[in-house]
Design a protein around this nucleic acid. Structure first.
Length: 352
DNA sequence: AAGTCGGGGTT
DNA sequence: AACCCAGACTT
């Protein structure tokens, strides 16, 4: 690893990157139009571990429904999760909602400019705080997302994979080193664009890169060795039994999942234990389906039991009382709630 | 430091 | 099928 750079080098590299940005950088992304701190923040949170093209329609939906931070703060969490459904990492949506309320109440609806204050807000870490400060307020702050990690790891042949402590520390040091005092908004966008469009994971377009002449990996033809890839491990399989409990004229029973854990805050099907708590016994199954869903860190295999309850059996479920965390879901008149993709698919697959 | 938390795009 | 994506948060 070559950390023997001087401030003078950093200025030259930053100047080349800024010049590249003026010619080739992205300037028409939705959150770059009529830029506000609210739009920058919303986009940055959505873009955490999520690709640009995936985010765009969600961003548009959110801006239409919640045009400002006060509107988002005043909304119900179920509607926020509903609009977030499919984006994944639902803690982001809960933190987003909470953050909107803090900004509305504590900061009178104006996001702070200081990265340290931004980082204290829920759902905003070091890189996102810097991105908001730089993009919304043109403040000098270094970002380090996946794009920049790859770009810097190659530029200096930084060993190790970025999840490792010392590797991450070296990358942050480089990120701070190259971030210029001036035009930080453009620079920040530029390094992300270079990572996304030029210094790609495979087949990087080094001949188009403004930092080619300084790149240690390019010099040694070792672009493909950096950054080192994450050590892989096999994902476990978790098995479960879920019930599609149907009550005529009401719908399917859904339970709200606890705020933390998988599908946190979303509405899902009850498992056998939950059904037994509610009914005292397991109902007779009419039909079974198999569900397999792959998460990034485990595979879910579930047996789906279809059951219909007659009116007499309804009583233990307090049909006429809307219990906290329980609801009846009618696929023909769906509620605006957060519903995991595979559960939504199950509930809407029974079209006759 | 390691684990948890999604769903989708790309190859 | 494997790998990664505009990471944050908990343990």
């Amino acid at each position: 690893m070559d950390l023997s750079v001087t401030p003078n080098d950093a200025d030259q590299v930053a100047a080349a990157i800024l010049s590249w940005y003026d010619q080739h950088g992205r300037k028409s992304l939705p959150w770059q139009q009529n830029r506000t701190a609210y739009k920058v923040w919303l986009s940055e949170v959505m873009l955490q571990q999520t690709q640009v093209n995936t985010v765009i329609p969600y961003f548009e939906n959110f801006i239409t429904r919640f045009p400002d931070v006060q509107t988002l703060a005043a909304a119900g969490i179920d509607e926020v999760l509903h609009l977030w459904t499919g984006l994944g990492y639902y803690a982001r949506a809960r933190n987003l909602h909470k953050c909107a309320q803090v900004v509305t109440d504590k900061y009178k609806g104006e996001f702070p400019e200081d990265p340290e204050l931004l980082e204290a807000l829920p759902g905003i870490g070091r890189s996102t705080a810097a991105a908001i400060a730089a993009q919304a307020y043109n403040k000098r702050a270094a970002i380090l997302d996946g794009n920049v990690k790859r770009f810097l790891a190659r530029l200096h042949c930084v060993p190790g994979w970025p999840g490792q402590g010392n590797t991450l520390k070296a990358l942050w040091r480089l990120a701070e080193h190259y971030t210029p005092q001036q035009r930080c908004q453009a620079y920040t966008q530029a390094v992300m664009d270079i990572g996304a469009l030029v210094c790609t994971r495979r087949n990087p377009k080094c001949d188009q890169c403004p930092a080619e002449r300084w790149c240690a990996a390019r010099l040694t033809a070792s672009q493909h060795d950096f950054p080192h890839s994450k050590p892989k491990k096999t994902n476990p399989v978790r098995q479960s039994t879920l019930y599609m409990l149907y009550v005529p004229n009401s719908g399917y029973l859904l339970l709200q999942r606890p705020p933390t854990g998988i599908w946190g805050g979303l509405w899902s099907l009850p498992d056998a234990k939950e059904i037994k708590n509610l009914l005292g016994q397991l109902p007779e199954t009419e039909e079974k389906q198999h569900l397999e869903h792959k998460f990034s860190h485990f595979t879910l295999q579930a047996e789906i039991h279809l059951c219909t309850l007659n009116t007499q059996q309804n009583k233990p479920l307090s049909l006429n009382i809307r219990e906290q965390g329980q609801r009846w879901y009618n696929p023909e008149q769906p509620d605006n709630i957060g519903l995991p993709g595979p559960i939504h698919k199950l509930l809407h697959a029974l079209r006759t």
